[in-house]
Amino acid sequence: MKQSSPARQRLTSLALLGLPLLTYPILSLPVGMWAGMPADYIYLFGVWAGLIVLAARVAEKKA
């Protein structure tokens, strides 16, 4: 990785995207049960997994 490479910038923006998605007030939006499971549980793990998938795609992309 070189200085200010596009991959680094994209990863940083992922972090900046993830922070509001995984904190309040957005976190108070999922309520009740989704498909028999707690909405909060599904939402948190879903967003988290999404971030990981995106990060993997950005980081492992061949320059």
Binding site: M1, S4, A7, R8, L11, T12, L14, A15, G18, L19, L22, P38, D40, Y41, L44, W48, L51, I52, A55
Partner: peptide
């Protein structure tokens, strides 16, 4: 409840700040 997850969400986000770690 789910509050234990914060201990693992923080590192996830921090690690993506690759610039700082690098």
């Amino acid at each position: 409840g789910l509050s234990f997850l914060t201990i693992y969400i923080g590192p996830t986000l921090m690690l993506m700040m690759t610039g700082i770690i690098l």
